[in-house]
Design a binder for these strands. Structure first.
Lengths: 129, 129
DNA sequence: AGTTACGTTGACGTTAACGTCAACTAGATG
DNA sequence: CATCTAGTTGACGTTAACGTCAACGTAACT
């Protein structure tokens, strides 16, 4: 069957515009086949889109997402290229760990802030009551 | 004592440019005092900058960071405003949790990719040896 | 007085990631 | 046949977050 998707199907599924999908193609992040004129997206394209959007949610640029996606490609170049990739992966991991720390801190802060807000509401209500 | 910082001191400490600090001020994120002409940053300004940069690392826009910083302000408005803030906090928390999931997934993926790369290097070395 | 260091306010330039037309094609349908 | 409904390719517009001058102030050395 090798599932196929029209540009609109894929766009709707991931809540992006068709313009976005064409833009990603321009940037070399997607390479859909063609049915005459129209683009036909494969399951692989769908996966790549998923990875791109996950990268976006984490604040990666498209170029960075492209790099990350390349890491999934088993046909990576020669020894030096591979080593470079490994180094990049290590860098990314460090960054991600930092982000996790930041996230935890912020979650704690937000929880504290929420408690303060709720307390403030109660006080206000008590006063008015 | 109430520590004070010049624009350059603060910029260097956080590895940003002075332009960035002035830009944040334009956007209402910082409000340094003035010594004649020059800006004098307080410990509070320093903390806000820290929060802004933490937000940046997590992919928040400056406006979003501004909102988050407001949550730290105990003098938050009336009941409705406070409730709105609480709602925002909840939304943020959900987003952050999603990010954590994304991060974990990506870290797993990167680890797998690294193993593949290393294996690939070994194979290549074995061949050449 | 000259220059060196640090600061200031405009104001225009830049990049990423799309948005938003316009003008066109190709197939399906009343 | 006309008119939807998807799709296409330009090409210019937009926003955020600064970068990059230019032209100037001031305070301290030397």
């Amino acid at each position: 069957m090798t599932e196929q998707y029209s540009i609109r199907e894929l766009a709707e599924e991931f809540a992006v515009t068709t313009r976005t999908l064409r833009f990603y193609e321009e940037k070399g992040l997607l390479e859909p086949a063609r049915d005459k004129q129209s683009r036909r997206y494969s399951a692989a394209d769908r996966t790549r889109l998923k990875l791109i959007l996950r990268g976006k949610r984490l604040g990666f640029t498209l170029e960075e997402s492209a790099d990350i996606i390349k890491m999934y490609d088993p046909s990576a170049g020669n020894k030096k290229q591979i080593q470079t990739l490994v180094d990049k992966i290590r860098e990314k991991s460090e960054l991600l760990k930092q982000q996790q720390k930041d996230l935890e801190l912020m979650l704690v802060d937000l929880a504290t802030a929420e408690k303060r807000c709720l307390a403030s509401i109660n006080t206000a209500t008590a006063k008015t009551a």
